[in-house]
Design a protein around this nucleic acid. Structure first.
Length: 257
DNA sequence: AGTTACCTCTGGCAGTGGAC
DNA sequence: GTCCACTGCCAGAGGTAACT
């Protein structure tokens, strides 16, 4: 019998549930039930208390690799974003991580070095390391290397794919543009410019279309600019230097604004 | 090339004791 | 003797590395 608090002699490194079982005088299965909180009705209260005490004394921590192996899931999800230069993505991560934690799942952030292009698999075998993938402002096709055709995928701010096994959460782009246009019109603006991000993605294309529709019948000039402060500034200066310059400029992104 | 060990979890089942 | 609730154990699955 090992001294309380010290690992049994045959335990080469960290204690296992088998060590706890041996020290507590119960089966390994009973240890599993107690420590996973599913013991009521199957293990006596006194026994459960003893198992917990022994586990604490030995410093037992479940082996996550073995648990993942047994359960076939890792309680880990990956959030892929095309960049970390925008506060928007920081907000996405914070919110997603909070909700994931509330469901007992960890969230790993992966700013893809390829931007919105096809993302590489950061794990080598993401399908074995993850339970699911979340992606913000990226096309589902760009995530093929990471998720294959098996990992669940939730897309944020991306083209909906009817029929595909993919959930999509989108902003109310058209409604937002309508409200924005109505607000600017109410302020008396009649000449508009759209400082559009020079990025070929569904969200920016959709925003442009929605804005065009909302401002139909007005003077709307669209200028494309790199998604950066310097690029947007240069494009805006050019725009404001033209005759009949716009009185209101709508930007695709906070960075450009 | 085939076998074993690693570690955890869980469905199914056996043993025990109390009530009727 | 039968039924039921409670308690705890057995067996097997899962991927990979080490071993035979």
């Amino acid at each position: 019998m090992p001294a309380p608090g010290s690992p049994p002699p045959d335990s080469a490194s960290r204690p296992t549930s088998r060590d706890v079982a041996r020290a507590a005088g119960v089966s390994q299965a009973a240890v599993s039930l107690v420590l996973s909180g599913k013991w009521r009705g199957r293990v006596g209260a006194a026994t459960a208390e003893r198992v917990r005490e022994v586990a604490d004394g030995l410093g037992y921590r479940p082996n996550l690799a073995a648990r993942n192996l047994r359960l076939g899931r890792t309680r880990t999800a990956l959030l892929v974003v095309p960049a970390l230069t925008s506060e928007f993505f920081a907000g996405v991560y914070t919110g997603a991580a909070r909700v994931a934690a509330a469901h007992g799942t960890g969230l790993v952030l992966y700013p893809s070095p390829e931007g919105i292009g096809p993302a590489r698999d950061p794990f080598g075998s993401a399908r074995a390391a993850l339970d699911g993938v979340l992606a913000s402002s990226m096309a589902a096709e760009a995530l093929a290397a990471i998720r294959g055709d098996t990992l669940p995928l939730v897309m944020l701010d991306a083209r909906p794919r009817p029929g595909a096994r993919t959930a999509t959460v989108n902003l109310a782009l058209a409604d937002g543009m309508r409200k924005l246009a109505a607000h600017l019109r109410a302020l008396g603006h009649r000449r508009f410019a759209h400082l559009a991000a020079d990025v070929d993605s569904w969200t920016f294309t959709s925003r442009a279309a929605a804005l065009g529709e909302a401002l139909a019948g007005t003077s709307l000039t669209t200028v494309r600019a790199p998604l950066s402060i310097a690029g947007a500034r240069e494009a805006a200066l050019r725009l404001l230097d033209t005759p009949g310059r716009p009185t209101a400029v709508v930007c695709d992104d906070d960075l450009m604004a």
